[in-house]
């Protein structure tokens, strides 16, 4: 664990000067077994500490891209290098080690409803926990304290011992963030974290994500449907269209024309014709 932290510290120092990307994706392709080609030759470099918004039409491949990064979806071809490690080639044990350095946040929160909030946050440590302790849910004191601290950071300290099913959607998503932060991850992947939330909860959640990204220099990739939220919070916006990178630029560079093109300039592709 210590060595991991060291490499990250090193990464942060060096990133200033030489900017080696924390995540580097090369020629990523994904074709689902039913023949849907969801990603076409996607290549990207994302340095440390950036908050990147990925936008695009429904079906553009945003979720697929994100899931390829931690291999919840197996890429068909291409290479993903994360923090110097080849994700695409990692075997089971290595993949576990890589995955625990990437936190993930889901549209449907994906908490274990029956368990209390604090346990769900502690689940973020399972990647570091031995089989027996993890199965029994016995976490060391410093991790419990850290989890309670994380909950305080997302404003849910007083909910720690409630069952997750008793929380509101916005609260659940903040638990999801606390769980991801608990991993001490260098990268957070958030797949439409606010799509099921109302405006004020959405703002809360995005504010927290933004502060995590800036204050702790955790790289964050967020799939978003709302362009205005992307413009408000992200440092950089990547537009996906039909599985390819349509545009990739700092948030300021995003023009009305580009957005219109991305969303409405949609030329039917062959997969919709046949």
């Amino acid at each position: 664990m210590a060595s991991e932290l060291n490499t990250r510290a090193l990464q942060q120092v060096t990133s200033e000067s030489t900017t080696p990307a924390l995540l580097s994706v090369r020629n990523l392709n994904k074709t689902y077994p039913d023949g849907t080609q969801a990603l076409h030759d996607v290549s990207l470099d994302i340095p440390s500490g950036q908050l990147v918004a990925v936008i695009g039409l429904s079906g553009a491949g945003k979720s697929t891209f994100m899931r390829c990064v931690n291999r919840l979806v197996e890429p068909t071809s291409g290479q993903i290098v994360f923090d110097g490690q080849d994700v695409t080639r990692a075997r089971r044990g290595d993949l576990r080690r890589i995955r625990r350095q990437m936190g993930m946040i889901f549209q449907q929160f994906n908490l274990v409803q029956r368990l209390p909030v604090v346990t769900n946050v502690l689940h973020g440590r399972l990647g570091y926990t031995s089989a027996v302790r993890g199965c029994l849910g016995r976490f060391p004191q410093h991790e419990v304290e850290q989890a309670l601290e994380m909950l305080a950071q997302v404003g849910l300290a007083d909910q720690a011992f409630k069952r997750c099913s008793e929380l509101s959607g916005g609260q659940m998503q903040r638990v999801g963030i606390a769980r991801a932060m608990m991993q001490g991850a260098a990268l957070i992947l958030a797949d439409e974290p606010i799509a099921s939330l109302d405006v004020s909860s959405s703002e809360k959640v995005m504010t927290i994500l933004k502060e995590v990204a800036t204050a702790q220099r955790i790289t964050t990739i967020v799939n978003l449907h709302q362009v205005d939220f992307a413009q408000q919070f992200a440092d950089r916006v990547i537009g996906l269209r039909d599985g390819s990178v349509f545009c990739d630029m700092p948030t300021d560079g995003l023009t009305e024309d580009l957005i219109r093109d991305l969303y409405y300039g949609h030329v039917p592709q062959q997969d919709e014709e046949d």
Partner: peptide, 29 residues
Amino acid sequence: PMGPIEALQASGASRSHIAFQGILPSVVR
């Protein structure tokens, strides 16, 4: 629900962790 299981997978939990912390709490009742 498959979501929480996927979430545990994504955080690097092992299979036994998922069985006990993800599946069991959902079905035990």
